[in-house]
C-alpha cells in the first residue's frame, strides 16, 4: 500500500518529506520504470507537481532562475531559456521522447543522478547553483559539488531541490550541446557533452566542458578546458582539446557502448565544438 501526498506548498512538502520512507516524485518517468523493473514499492510518495515554488523560469539580476519542477517541454519552449541558455534548450529537446519531455523535470533529472542524465553536462558547462530546501531552511550549493558518487548526491534526508540558478551568459558566450545516443528518440546517451566559452581578443576564456556517461557522475573535462584556455580556437587547438579530453576520461564498456567508442566519440565532439566557435 502506497500513500500518495499531493502538497500545494513547499513548506508542506518539506514537512511530509521528514518521513524517512517518503520518496519525492515529479514526472515519475524514472521512478515508475525503476519500480516496475525491481518490483520495489514505496510506503509514501510526495508529489511535487503542485508546488508553485518549483515552477517557472525567471530572470533575477544576472541569473536565470529555473524551477526544479519545470518540465523539459517547458524549458525548450521558454523564451528566456531559448535566448540565453541555448544548450539547455537543445538538451531538453533530446531527452526521451515528447511524452517524456512533457512529464520529466529538470529537478528530477538532477536528483535521479544518473551519470547519463542529458541535462547535467549543460549545468556543469553553465556553472549552475542549486537551491535546496529542508526543515533547516534553504541552502545553496554549486551544482558541480552535488554529485558525490554513482547516484549519490549532496541532498540531505528530507531535503528537496527547489531552484536551479544559472548565471546569465554574456552576449559573447558561446554554447554547444551534443548527445550521442543509439537512436533518434528514447535513447540513453553513450556520450553527452556540453560546452561554454567566451572569446576575448580572439582567445578562449571561461572554458567549461561538462560530459556524461563517462564516469560514475557527470564530469568536467578540466584538462581539455586547460588546453583551450587562452588559445585561438583553430584546428590545432581543436585537435589538442580532443586528445586531452580522451586522455582524461576513464569510460567503461557496458551494454550501451564501449570505452573505446566513448573516448573516440568524445574527442570528436569536443573537436567539432571548438572548430565551430565563431566570435
Amino acid at each position: 500500500m502506497t500513500v500518495a501526498h499531493r502538497p500545494t506548498s513547499l513548506g508542506d512538502a518539506i514537512r511530509l518529506m521528514a518521513d524517512p520512507v517518503a520518496v519525492a516524485v515529479a514526472g515519475c518517468t524514472d521512478l515508475l520504470v525503476a519500480d516496475l523493473a525491481t518490483g520495489r514499492r514505496h510506503a509514501a510518495v510526495v508529489d511535487l507537481s503542485r508546488l508553485p515554488e518549483l515552477k517557472g523560469v525567471r530572470e533575477d539580476g544576472g541569473v536565470i532562475d529555473l524551477g526544479a519542477g519545470c518540465t523539459f517541454t517547458e524549458l525548450r519552449r521558454d523564451p528566456l531559456v531559448r535566448s540565453h541558455l541555448s544548450s539547455l534548450a537543445e538538451a531538453a529537446a533530446t531527452i526521451g521522447g515528447w511524452q517524456i519531455q512533457n512529464r520529466a523535470t529538470l529537478g528530477g533529472n538532477i536528483v535521479n543522478a544518473s551519470p547519463a542524465g542529458d541535462a547535467l553536462p549543460v549545468l556543469l558547462a553553465l556553472d549552475a547553483t542549486l537551491v535546496l530546501g529542508g526543515t533547516q531552511g534553504t541552502r545553496e550549493i554549486a551544482y558541480e559539488s552535488f554529485h558525490q558518487d554513482y547516484r549519490k548526491t549532496a541532498l540531505r534526508q528530507g531535503e528537496l531541490l527547489v531552484r536551479i540558478r544559472i548565471p546569465r551568459p554574456s552576449s559573447t558566450t558561446w554554447q554547444a550541446f551534443r548527445k550521442v545516443g543509439t537512436r533518434e528518440a528514447q535513447a540513453i546517451s553513450k556520450v553527452v557533452v556540453a560546452m561554454s566559452a567566451s572569446l576575448a581578443d580572439g582567445a578562449l576564456r571561461d572554458v567549461r566542458i561538462g560530459a556524461g556517461s563517462l564516469a560514475p557522475t557527470p564530469v568536467r573535462l578540466r584538462a581539455a578546458e586547460g588546453v583551450l584556455t587562452g588559445r585561438v580556437p583553430d584546428a590545432a587547438a581543436a585537435d589538442d582539446a580532443a586528445s586531452a579530453a580522451r586522455a582524461e576520461v576513464r569510460p567503461l564498456d557496458d551494454v550501451r557502448s564501449t570505452a573505446r567508442y566513448r573516448r573516440w566519440a568524445l574527442g570528436n565532439v569536443v573537436r567539432r565544438f571548438v572548430r565551430g566557435i565563431r566570435a
Partner: peptide, 16 residues
C-alpha cells in the same frame, strides 16, 4: 542476454 528490457533492447522509433 544483456539487452533484456526495452530500455536496452532497442528497436527503431517513428523518428528512426
Amino acid at each position: 542476454y544483456l539487452n533484456d528490457r526495452l530500455q536496452t533492447c532497442l528497436i527503431p522509433t517513428t523518428r528512426d
